[in-house]
């Protein structure tokens, strides 16, 4: 029995470790407290966003920090926002997992005078402002422009998405397909979009299969940061680097090696760090009573185009072998 107690105690301690690690000292009270809630912690995308949030804390002199659930779980996100409300923060910046699930809690926050800023959720209700670093239509079309350039404007290609239910990936694909129908009539989509872009191994496997099923394949456009590297790996293995073009959203540091040897041709993205910074910046403007207007300048990002309560800043980045190492993420 004694042995049992010891093991349980050890186990309980083990489980508490994460909580202990996160129990940070409470911050000072005389600056604005701006919390950012992300979809999920522990993936590079949001790690990068945290860099931006921390940069904002330093440069703007606010107490800003980032939290998020361990899974991309809407319910956990709601709970985190609720906790922040009772904690009495000044502003909450959210990258929503589920727009509708967050609406009631956003309304409650605003009733208490808390500013709500969202990112990647332009149609969100209950927010003060949403900020987008890309224009989604433009972003989708740009992929096809780049793909067409690499493929010479004609030939067979396939699309990878993260899954068939990721809204943005599929929105980009929809926009791009519509655009290609008029703009690039000689480019032929061989099969419906393939859901493998969040799994490098699967993307590689699917690419190998596509090469067999469609021997004339000339291009792959991938959304979801693991799709293009997987495709690139398959091309490397089959010696088809020059035959098939790969274009898509990728993390610069991850894609660098593939961009450099030509197995991947072109990457397109925005910097999540910029998004983290921009959300905090917008929140601070509102807290200081300033108004957001067309043509305002977000430090380091460019000028604002205001569309109702959606703030657009064109911060799309093109990633190539030459610049992949310069982004710092």
């Amino acid at each position: 029995m004694k042995k049992g107690i010891v093991v349980w105690a050890a186990l309980a301690l083990l489980m508490l470790t994460p909580a202990l690690l996160f129990a940070k000292a409470e911050a000072e009270d005389d600056v604005y407290e701006i919390a950012t809630v992300v979809k999920i912690t522990g993936i590079p995308w949001f790690n990068r966003m945290e860099v931006g949030v921390n940069r904002a804390a330093e440069e703007l002199g606010v107490n800003s920090y980032q939290i998020g659930p361990a899974d991309a779980d809407p319910a956990q996100q709601v709970r985190m926002v609720e906790d922040l409300i009772s904690k009495g923060v000044d502003a909450i910046c959210v990258t929503p997992n589920d727009a509708t699930a967050l609406e009631p809690v956003f309304n409650r926050a605003r009733e208490q005078g808390i500013i709500i800023i969202t990112h990647e959720s332009p149609d969100q209700r209950g927010k003060d402002y949403d900020i987008e670093l890309i224009d989604n239509e433009n972003f989708g079309r740009h992929h096809w422009d780049m793909l067409a350039e690499q493929m010479g404007g004609s030939g067979q290609y396939a699309i990878f998405v993260g899954s068939l239910t990721v809204p943005l990936h599929n929105l980009w694909a929809d926009v791009g397909l519509e655009y290609a129908a008029t703009q690039y009539p000689d480019m032929e989509l061989v099969t419906t979009r393939i859901p493998c872009g969040e799994d490098q191994e699967l993307s590689k496997q699917r690419t190998l299969e596509l090469l067999q099923a469609y021997p004339d394949l000339k291009g792959i456009v991938g959304f979801g940061s693991l799709g293009p590297p997987g495709a690139a790996q398959a091309l490397r293995e089959k010696g088809l680097i020059d035959e098939v073009a790969v274009v898509g959203t990728v993390l610069p540091a991850h894609a660098a090696q593939y961009l450099k040897d030509g197995s991947m041709d072109h990457g397109i993205l925005w910097d999540p760090g910029d998004a983290g910074y921009a959300m905090t910046w917008v929140a601070l403007q509102l807290l200081e009573g300033k108004e957001i207007v067309n043509g305002m300048n977000v430090p380091g990002l460019g000028t604002v185009v205001l569309d109702g309560d959606v703030i657009k800043v064109d911060a799309m980045i093109d990633i190539t072998g030459a610049n992949a190492d310069d982004f710092g993420f």
Binding site: T17, L21, G42, A70, A253, H254, Q257
Partner: peptide, 18 residues
């Protein structure tokens, strides 16, 4: 959950590319 959770805590979820 414990194994995976602890790994995420200590690694911060960083990917290793190179």
């Amino acid at each position: 959950n414990v194994f995976y959770g602890l790994l995420i805590v200590f690694s911060g979820g960083k990917w290793i590319y190179t």
